[in-house]
Write a protein that binds this DNA or RNA. Structure first.
Lengths: 151, 151
DNA sequence: TCATTTCGACAGGTTACCTGTCTAGTTGTA
DNA sequence: TACAACTAGACAGGTAACCTGTCGAAATGA
């Protein structure tokens, strides 16, 4: 099941070329990450949950703050957090600074996910560096940084 | 509402750097496209419908084929097509070559969406070229093409 | 001819999103 | 200090976008 087998006659392929070039490596990386997570038993962590883990501070973060960072509604974030809590990836503890609030924090099981993510990122970068060479990878990164800086 | 305002202490920010660099320009482009579509009255066309329009051949395409290309279940694709059909962006006509099948085809209203998409892509590329310069844009594109070629 | 495959419809379920409302608690200000 | 205004998160209820499984009609291959 090659995900890159795009139709030759797709009506929008030509104009979207650059968009696809940006999207595909990201998509491939996300796919690899979730494959690896599944292999190691973390089937309950699916792509949307990245929006939680990605924005979690080490010392815990409020649900409302996570929702703001991920740009979804509080209720949506609360559901994702509840799912991860049910599966033991995060825990919610009382916020000592605000009695209304709870802080969401990664558990040891949650931190395993971070470790796997770091491995996958390292593996991908290594693979890409093999294909492009170190110099061109640096070039690519620099160009992407410039592009991102200009929003 | 700056979408790029990422938390300084995000636990995964460092290792994901390159992933984010790839994702952000794509995300920004998608956002701009759907803003423009909404401005011009095409509020019914939302991101998932790109999976239909993106893979439509000019002479029409079967739902099953679209599902394969977009890598979703037939039923999911059928829903997206039904939505676009209800809103007048595509029509389904009998497939002359297969009496079981119907071909999904863009209507004039659907082709407006393609036109807007092409405008947005052109605008983004122009904006990025202003930031990076034509030479670096060519470099970036070449590097991304190499990266994608290596899957 | 007939077993197998394929197309698209239907049934039924889940997940990830949304808005709106409510209570408890915080904060800014008269 | 008092109180209006705001904020955190829970609950209610809804929708869109995905899934699997099943089916009848049509196509295909042996």
């Amino acid at each position: 099941m090659p995900p890159s087998r795009l139709p030759r006659t797709s009506a929008r392929e030509q104009p979207e070329n650059l968009a696809i070039l940006l999207r595909e490596p990201f998509r491939a990386g996300t796919e690899l990450l979730h494959e690896r997570l599944a292999e190691r038993g973390h089937t309950a962590v699916r792509p949307p949950h990245g929006a939680v883990l990605q924005y979690l501070d080490d010392d815990g973060t409020q649900v409302s703050e996570l929702a703001r960072r991920a740009q979804v509604a509080k209720q949506s974030m609360a559901e994702l957090v509840a799912h991860l809590e049910r599966h033991g990836y995060v825990e919610r503890v009382a916020d000592p600074a605000d009695r209304r609030a709870k802080l969401v924090r990664a558990t040891p099981r949650g931190r395993e996910v971070y470790a796997i993510a770091r491995e996958v990122v390292a593996e991908l970068e290594a693979r890409w560096t093999t294909h492009l060479g170190a110099a061109r990878m640096r070039q690519l990164r620099a160009l992407l940084e410039e592009l991102n800086a200009g929003l």
